[in-house]
């Protein structure tokens, strides 16, 4: 009972963290709320499926190729759509959101739903942890989540691009004046966010059937995690994913499985109404209120 809750809560939380990772990274660096995140997530899944089933590429190269393609799409996205409206937060939101919806609706129209669309797992089989059966794919999800967070931390704190990213996040104008190109960093951040969405998709999607509507859910989860934890805080993001992850598993166990989807939506609305800066968000409060 308790172990099941713990293990599934943990796996669920890490999945949510994976959803949110790319979104938070892009927002944290360039202040760009990429509402096409969910669409990019599911798009990379379908890209991988197509590579495997229509081109006969094995799983691992297909996965890598799909990550690269999605990252490039994010990059192109910036230069084609966002360049002219950069800095107008609302136009950015509307454009990314509608681009995302357009991608998802086109996927639905193309008939990308149903049982035959599922990605193969990387590892078959499973083990028992404290009396709870866990398959290897879920362990892979856990591992990927941990590794990605560590890698990102190293990247942002110890590489030149990472430092440029941090400079941009702190003060765009000062960063510009020391020769960091805002558009270059912005497009890179979007590309990385998109690539992270693809990585998340490729480890999480094999757990179930692919459907284009998952894109909306991923966006909601990413937003919920980011908002609950505080939009620019990494620790907050991890905390947020655990709160919502365990909240969901608990809601499913004690109230009913249907209530799982209510948790993130309600969390967004409640947090924005009560404490819009999120649990660990720092300076937002002054800006958003009063």
């Amino acid at each position: 009972m308790i172990p099941t809750l713990l293990v599934y809560g943990l796996v669920n939380s890490v999945i949510l963290a994976l959803y949110a990772l790319g979104f938070s990274l892009t927002y944290g660096i360039s202040g760009l709320a990429n509402f096409a995140h969910g669409a990019l997530y599911i798009l990379s899944g379908f890209a991988a499926w197509n590579l495997i089933h229509h081109m006969g590429i094995p799983l691992l190269p297909a996965a890598l190729l799909s990550v690269a393609l999605t990252g490039m799409l994010g990059f192109v996205f910036y230069w084609v759509l966002l360049l002219r409206i950069r800095g107008i937060a609302l136009a950015e939101l509307v454009v990314t959101f509608s681009a995302g919806v357009a991608i998802l609706e086109i996927l639905t129209w193309q008939g990308f739903y149903g049982i035959r669309y599922s990605l193969p797992v990387f590892l078959r089989g499973g083990i028992e942890v404290g009396g709870v059966a866990v398959d290897y794919q879920r362990l892979l999800v856990l591992g990927t989540g941990v590794v990605l967070v560590i890698l990102l931390w190293l990247f942002v704190h110890h590489t030149r691009i990472g430092l440029a990213f941090r400079a941009m996040a702190q003060n765009e104008r000062t960063a510009l004046s020391v020769g960091i190109e805002s558009d270059w960093v912005g497009s890179l951040s979007l590309a990385m966010g998109a690539a992270l969405a693809a990585v998340a998709a490729l480890v999480v999607l094999p757990l179930g059937v692919m459907e284009s509507t998952i894109g909306y859910e991923v966006l909601i989860y990413a937003l919920a995690v980011a908002i609950v934890g505080g939009l620019e805080s990494t620790v907050g993001m991890i905390l947020g994913s655990f709160l919502i992850g365990f909240g969901q598993v608990a809601a499913a166990r004690f109230i009913g499985a249907k209530w799982m989807v209510i948790v993130p939506l309600a969390a967004i609305v409640v947090v924005l109404a009560v404490r819009p800066s999120g649990i660990l968000g720092r300076f937002k409060e002054l800006e958003e209120r009063v």
């Binding site: 939101l93 937003l223 309600a266 967004i268 609305v269 819009p276 009063v290």
Partner: peptide, 21 residues
């Protein structure tokens, strides 16, 4: 009314979530 103090993007996000909720 409880979220009326939110600006721009934040208000847009809440309104996006409400009908879904």
């Amino acid at each position: 009314a409880p979220v009326i103090r939110l600006r721009g993007v934040y208000f847009a996000m809440v309104t996006l979530m409400f009908p879904l909720l």
